[in-house]
Write a protein that binds this DNA or RNA. Structure first.
Lengths: 207, 207, 207, 207
DNA sequence: CATGAATGAGTGTTCATTCAT
DNA sequence: AATGAATGAACACTCATTCAT
């Protein structure tokens, strides 16, 4: 490998690292303050640079949001697909999906918060059409699973299907709002307890 | 009662009605688009007037948000206080609180959505200090109830208390994002099903 | 006519007058400094208002340029069409067209300057497609006339046709750069002298 | 001559060549898009380098414009001075000046276009004071020539002197806007035909 | 009560320019 | 010579707000 080649690789990698740093910072600020309420100057401050300098790395505020959200969704679906590919029974699959979701919150907490707070608004923009597509795919994945679970006798059949779907969906994602990656409980413990609540309820047994 | 007096009352009442109309409209637009992403012109358009005219009724955009949120919270706490005043056992109280919450979503859906999406951001402003106070009171109310329920043997004691609190809190409020006041399921039915899920879990019994 | 109707008319007319005033001012500044080199603040200053206030009347800087140029071209073609409709011989038609052109410079001097300096640049924008269309129509109008004049024996046939076209076109329009509506020579006198030069040359007769 | 000395000369010459290349490129882009509407990045792109790299060769965007324009004007005046030094009669001098002007357009087309479109704007800057000086000198050269020609009986005396001056000036320079160095007609042919039109007019003889 | 014209601070973005490498 | 990251001033434009009518 020529020295010049190594240089190019080093700088390309360095640039990528800088972009990722800035993007993480931006995601945190967007998550904390809301995308619309955040100015590009605030993002730049948090990244230790001037507003104009951001535009050396990114086209626009919108493209930052785009990269943040699509990065999260790509990663999320990769982990979901891995779970689904195992072909386990409905009960096991549900557990693994919830675990995968909390693991994803662990890795992309700010992006998940943005996803929840901004996606309705952003989805109006054709550039963010993938948000609606992801939601559709998400819904059919869970609906299929819940139906299958009811057929397999694993899940109660006396509940409204779409309510159960929303219950699980919301219950998991909303946790991104308070989850602390450095907190007392690791994501896997939280997933375990959430599964206990969702599957068995909070009522004392035998009650 | 003099005619002049009657006139004054009529116009005062009419003004109050107009304000309430505008406020409902504003809450809907804020809920749909996000507070920061909504312009006063969009609110005015939706209310059938020009932007400047809103200022005859309201001091500022902020004061609209203030009235919307505080109106919701006042109503919510009134209904919570009524439930708590009954002094029922923990299990019954929990049921009544969840029912009251869904009833509140029914009456104040856009305000609830705003509360969820904007309160973190708005709470930085001293004017909205009551948002944080409400949250604190909310937390202690539920924590006390859950502790009491565990002592009474009504709720499981093997779960992390703060996780259970968040589970219940989020599970209820996030429903405002999709709840449709004119939809298939009335708020009371949704409350009933949510209670079934939260208390007994979605797992088939005997499983 | 009801008073309200009269009010509406008066205000609509007043608004139109204000728009026209601002547009005239903008055209002058654009002509003097160049469109790209002129800031919206400079236009606003010249119009005696703040930059933001311009946007109450106009959508964008671009739409100001659009109105200025299309207003000029509409007027120009109306006067050209009137000349052509007369169906005079080539020599007379040429005289009338040149006179009409100088009259147009008199009425729209800043717009003509903009047309010359900016149209190549603006025409890249689909919104300004009419600039290219106008130029095409202009060229065929003059080419037809010059050909007819040569056929009628009125114009020399020993010159390159496209050079003659450009000679006349440029010779007339470039005058907008120095023409002064309040100057010593009225537009009609200038037209007369230009025609003398273009038709007979500047060489002393019999030379 | 030492090898080091030869190296220095070679690199100095190479640098000069690179500067000239870049300057030609810049002139073309400035002429096509307008000076103010052209970004330094566009110039750099066209020159096959990055924006920052231009600053190794040139102080500023302005200094590029300066070199382009002054280079053109120096060359122009050298050729004018050569014509004037011959001391020919007015008619011949006029012909030689027009030929020299078209030859100059041939060599410096983009610079001439810039001169026409940008000089009014640039001349406000003290650095470009020479533009106004050149124009003054240009005007007096032509005025003297036209006066002398009228005295010598070569040019018509019934025309407004300043109109004739502008007529000739504009007529020649505006051709830079469409002149194509690789086109059908060489500059000398265009000069010849222009002289025919300017001197004898486009009217058929005897008409 | 409402309008419409205007304000002025602020927004996302651009761009000429700098400079360590 | 050239790169690439950054600067900082300026730009077109937005928007909450004001106020005379």
């Amino acid at each position: 490998m020529s020295p010049r080649r190594r240089d190019a690789e080093r700088t390309a990698a360095a640039r990528e690292r800088r972009r990722a740093e800035i993007l993480d910072t931006a995601a945190e600020v967007f998550a904390r303050q809301g995308y619309a309420a955040t100015t590009i100057r605030q993002v730049a401050d948090a990244a230790g640079m001037l507003a104009g300098s951001l535009y050396y790395h990114f086209d626009s505020k919108e493209s930052m949001a785009d990269e943040i959200l699509s990065g999260f969704l790509d990663d999320l679906w990769a982990s979901y697909d891995a779970v689904l590919a195992e072909g386990a029974d409905a009960r096991t699959t549900l557990e693994r999906l919830v675990e995968a979701s909390f693991a994803s919150i662990h890795r992309h907490r700010p992006a998940v918060v943005m996803y929840q707070n901004e996606s309705r608004h952003l989805a109006l923009n054709p550039r963010f059409a993938y948000l609606a597509e992801s939601q559709t795919r998400f819904r059919s994945m869970w609906s299929d699973l819940l139906t299958r679970g009811a057929d397999e006798g694993a899940f109660r059949a006396d509940l409204d299907a779409s309510l159960v779907y929303r219950f699980i969906r919301d219950t998991v994602w909303v946790a991104a709002n308070w989850y602390d990656p450095h907190g007392r409980l690791p994501a896997s413990d939280i997933a375990e307890q959430y599964l206990a609540m969702v599957l068995e309820g909070i009522q004392a047994p035998g009650e």
